[in-house]
């Protein structure tokens, strides 16, 4: 397995995979940080992040997953490398090695964005200390939907030589997932799409916001964690992994 990881690393050298991922992450950070200026938002900053960021994650993380998975799989498609790899190594192992490598890139982005969120909070001087328990929940509820989306995209990218297909499916899924967050009237919509779980697992609500006073009398509160959705998503991840691996093992190369 170690040699397969090494092989993945060698294949992605000078391919700017990490750089592309981190460039998108940099855009993510540049987009979300300059907005906390008012005194009200400094007062509410820590909780406001937990309220706002799931929406940003629902746009960025799936698109990042599409790009990273496509980049890693396209290397094999272009040179007809899967056939050669399958001669020397078990297909399941190839699937696992590429998956772990890609997930490592994704998780590095999730961790960096999480760490930067906290660092930025301290830098601008959010009032009070960081609610670390809630932030750990947030990290978990960002990482697991990202893993599920990446698994889906990775399997599509590996199975289709034409990378336009995973891109279109992923973009439409991201679109649906983002929109589902604006439709709390249809909670089933979030739960029926892997892209919707960023919204389904968000656990902070905004109260007291008005058009006139905006955040002056507003506050954020925990509205409850949807553990059932989380458990469903974990099972979906396991199911997608097993199905994806099996599809790849049976695929005609």
């Amino acid at each position: 397995m170690i040699s397969l990881f090494k092989c993945e690393f060698m294949k992605t050298r000078r391919r700017y995979v990490f750089m592309t991922a981190w460039a998108i992450l940099a855009a993510f950070l540049a987009w979300i940080y300059p907005r906390h200026q008012s005194a009200d938002l400094l007062r509410l900053g820590w909780m406001e992040n937990l309220y706002e960021l799931p929406l940003v994650n629902a746009i960025f993380m799936p698109l990042l997953s599409i790009i990273v998975s496509s980049r890693l799989c396209d290397i094999e498609h272009k040179g007809y490398m899967l056939k050669q790899l399958a001669v020397t190594e078990k297909r399941g192992k190839i699937y696992d090695a590429k998956l772990i490598y890609g997930l490592a890139i994704m998780m590095s982005c999730v961790m960096i964005s999480w760490g930067m969120t906290i660092a930025f909070g301290y830098h601008v001087g959010y009032q009070g200390g960081v609610p670390i328990k809630l932030y750990l929940f947030y990290l978990l509820f960002t990482a697991v939907p990202t893993i599920s989306v990446y698994l889906f995209q990775y399997t599509l990218s590996l199975c289709f030589k034409n990378q336009a297909i995973p891109f279109f499916v992923g973009a439409m899924g991201t679109f649906l997932g983002t929109f589902s967050m604006f439709l709390p009237q249809f909670p089933w919509l979030r739960r029926s799409l892997i892209w919707g779980y960023y919204g389904a697992l968000s656990f902070v609500g905004l109260f007291g916001w008005t058009k006139e006073n905006r955040y002056q009398y507003a506050h954020f509160d925990v509205i409850g964690i949807d553990w059932l959705s989380f458990i469903i998503l974990v099972f979906v991840c396991v199911g997608m992994y097993l199905i994806g691996r099996e599809i790849f093992k049976r695929k005609e190369l």
Binding site: R15, Y16, A23, A27, I67, V68, S70, R71, D74
Partner: peptide, 12 residues
Amino acid sequence: KSFAQPVGIAFL
């Protein structure tokens, strides 16, 4: 030559 990178640039 990459398929993904120009799409990433379009997103950015």
